[in-house]
Design a binder for these strands. Sequence first.
DNA 1: GATACCATTTTGGGATACCAGACCGGTGTT
DNA 2: AACACCGGTCTGGTATCCCAAAATGGTATC
Lengths: 221, 221
Amino acid sequence: MSQMQSVEKQLRHMILGLEIGPGEKLTERWIENRFGASRTPVRAALLRLETEGLVSRDGRGWSVSPINLAELEQIAVYREAVEVAALRLTCALADRSAVDVIEAMLESCDNDTPREEWHRVGMDFHIELARLSANEFLFRAVRDSMTRLSRARWLEVRDEAALARAWAEHRAILAAVRLGDAEEAARLLTSHIVGSRDRLVTSLANDRRGLRARGFAVVAA
Amino acid sequence: MSQMQSVEKQLRHMILGLEIGPGEKLTERWIENRFGASRTPVRAALLRLETEGLVSRDGRGWSVSPINLAELEQIAVYREAVEVAALRLTCALADRSAVDVIEAMLESCDNDTPREEWHRVGMDFHIELARLSANEFLFRAVRDSMTRLSRARWLEVRDEAALARAWAEHRAILAAVRLGDAEEAARLLTSHIVGSRDRLVTSLANDRRGLRARGFAVVAA
DNA sequence: GATACCATTTTGGGATACCAGACCGGTGTT
DNA sequence: AACACCGGTCTGGTATCCCAAAATGGTATC
């Protein structure tokens, strides 16, 4: 059995789900025992997760990357550049009917939907929207950005009002894309990303003490 | 001795310098012998180079990534997005004196300068310009893009006229940045990137037969 | 002569043994 | 009580072994 991908997947899942706290130390031996794999696949997983920014070298060893407010702000700028570029490409497409699939994705969330699902769909909206551009690099950039933002976004998903607002903005963006109005879509997406960032950073800065109490490392901006 | 980084560095250098042809098969054992390292650091190197796009899985084994025309075109779009975003940030800075350092870098190339140096400085121009934005993600995006483009750019550097043109465009961009004219700088950078891409893709498509004869895999757009 | 088949070799994936250096805790000294 | 020292333990880095699967090449058959 190829345990390599399994270790990587499981470890990523634990990190993204905050089952292992940001800033926590990791030893190859612990991972080895935890997932019943040997060091070769463990090391492969760590190397991959390092490039995703989920894990970092900590001196000689490893640790789960802390949540970094300065990094979140920089990612927002990066996201804005790549997502807007992807969006403009998509608006220029002759066939933009694929937005309906994304719209349907949004509709699949209602009051009975668990938090986890909202969290996932909220990210997938951006990822799938970027995929429509058919540009592999823009797509990957968005996907990787969302992975890096994923842990911090658990906070936003706890705020009912923020969630409703995000969904409304998502729908508005899709509407503009459907019409092929690149300028309007870009404007909406930009303000959505900037707004998200502001709410996220504010909320993280406020919760910082509480998060640290739970053992989560949160680095200031 | 930490041979891990050494293997990675040396292998990357051979690949970027076309000492190992695009599309060529690689075996872990060959690398092992070639660099006198054992398989663990070899695997680490391969995993890292894979994320850089220099090496790809080829069935069960590994091979040097072929030069892919479709990929080059997509990277150009991606580059345009991130480089322009970085440039706008830089233009908004109060202190833009760092452009002088980049200007000096360009000036360091004259008729006696070896091809290799022109090649490196041509890439470093874009990388260092992106670094000025002080956004780590935009910077990395540009750096990684240039790495991916590096091999294909060996062709452009053989064309004296193209080189002169590129340098002129580089200088014009710096001049606009120095004035803080973001719109003009963005316009110049965009057309520089688009122009580079067109010349590169055209020239590659023309040389494709010759490159293949040298054993270089070149995938069509 | 082409092709299907089988034995051998080779390959990457995984496991394990070993090492040098960092880290930690206790002890003895001041 | 504070601090310097020292020995054991733990960790990541490396080398090496083993294995299953895939590639290879030769051979017999049609």
